[in-house]
C-alpha cells in the first residue's frame, strides 16, 4: 500500500506541490478581491446611496454556485487556473465589501475631523487613520474569505482537474482510495485553520489597542 502522502502519478504533483498550488489558487483571488474591495468600500462609505445596490448585487453574485461560475468561464478562459480564480475573487470581494464599509463607517467623525485639523491630507488620512481603525473589520472579512476560498478551490477538480488538493478527490473515487479523500479534506481543513490562526495573529499585531478578551468570531 502507498504511504498516506504518496500520490498517484496522474496528479502530476507531489503532496507539497498540491499544497502550494492550492494556496496559490485560493489566496491570489482573495488578494485581488481585497484590492478591489478597498476602493469599492471607500466609495460606498463616501456616497451612501451606492451601498444598497452594491449590497444587492454582491448578494446575488454570492448566491451563484461556484461550479456554475466555473463552467460559464470555461468558454472564456478554458479549463485553467484563471477560470477557478475569478469566481473566488468575486466571492472574496462580496465577503469583504460590507465588512470594510462597516469598518470605515465606524471611524468616529471626531477622529476624522481631528486628523483633518492636524493637517492630514486625504490619502494620508486614509492610510494612517481610517485603514488602521477599520483593520479589525477588514481582517474579520479576510478570515471568512480565505477559509471559504480554500474550501472552494477543490470544486475546480470538476473542470479538468483544476482543483489542486481537490484533484485527489477524483483519484480517490476512480481508484477507490478513501485515504486520498481523507487526505484532501484534512489538508484543506488544516490549511484553513492555520490561515485563520495567522490572520488572528496579524490582527493582534496590527491592533494592539484592541481588548484581548475572547469573543467568538
Amino acid at each position: 500500500m502507498n504511504g498516506f502522502f504518496d500520490l498517484p502519478s496522474d496528479l502530476q504533483y507531489s503532496y507539497l506541490g498540491l499544497v502550494g498550488l492550492h494556496l496559490r489558487e485560493a489566496l491570489i483571488p482573495v488578494l485581488a478581491g481585497l484590492l478591489i474591495a478597498l476602493p469599492v468600500a471607500q466609495l460606498c462609505a463616501r456616497f451612501r446611496w451606492i451601498y444598497p445596490p452594491v449590497l444587492g448585487l454582491t448578494t446575488v453574485l454570492y448566491a451563484i454556485p461556484s461550479l456554475a461560475f466555473f463552467v460559464v468561464l470555461i468558454d472564456y478562459f478554458g479549463q485553467s487556473e484563471t477560470t477557478v480564480m475569478i469566481p473566488l475573487a468575486v466571492y472574496s470581494l462580496v465577503v469583504l465589501v460590507p465588512g470594510i464599509v462597516d469598518g470605515v463607517r465606524s471611524v468616529p467623525k471626531e477622529t476624522l475631523a481631528a486628523a483633518e485639523a492636524m493637517g492630514f491630507g486625504p490619502l494620508r488620512r486614509y492610510l494612517q487613520v481610517q485603514l488602521p481603525i477599520a483593520a479589525p473589520a477588514i481582517i474579520a472579512g479576510l478570515r471568512v474569505a480565505v477559509i471559504s476560498s480554500l474550501s472552494l478551490v477543490s470544486v475546480g477538480m470538476l473542470i479538468g482537474n483544476q482543483g489542486a488538493l481537490g484533484n485527489m478527490l477524483y483519484d480517490a473515487t476512480t481508484y477507490h482510495r478513501p485515504a486520498l479523500a481523507v487526505n484532501s479534506v484534512l489538508t484543506t481543513a488544516v490549511l484553513g485553520v492555520l490561515a485563520d490562526a495567522l490572520l488572528v495573529l496579524v490582527r493582534r499585531l496590527l491592533t494592539p489597542w484592541m481588548p484581548r478578551k475572547g469573543a467568538a468570531r
Binding site: 474550501s151 481537490g166 484532501s184 485563520d196
Partner: peptide, 15 residues
C-alpha cells in the same frame, strides 16, 4: 466554527 468552515464541502461530500 472555524473547523467547520475549514472543512471543504465538496471534499467532504466525496469522502
Amino acid at each position: 466554527a472555524t473547523a467547520g468552515r475549514a472543512l471543504p464541502s465538496f471534499g467532504l461530500l466525496v469522502l
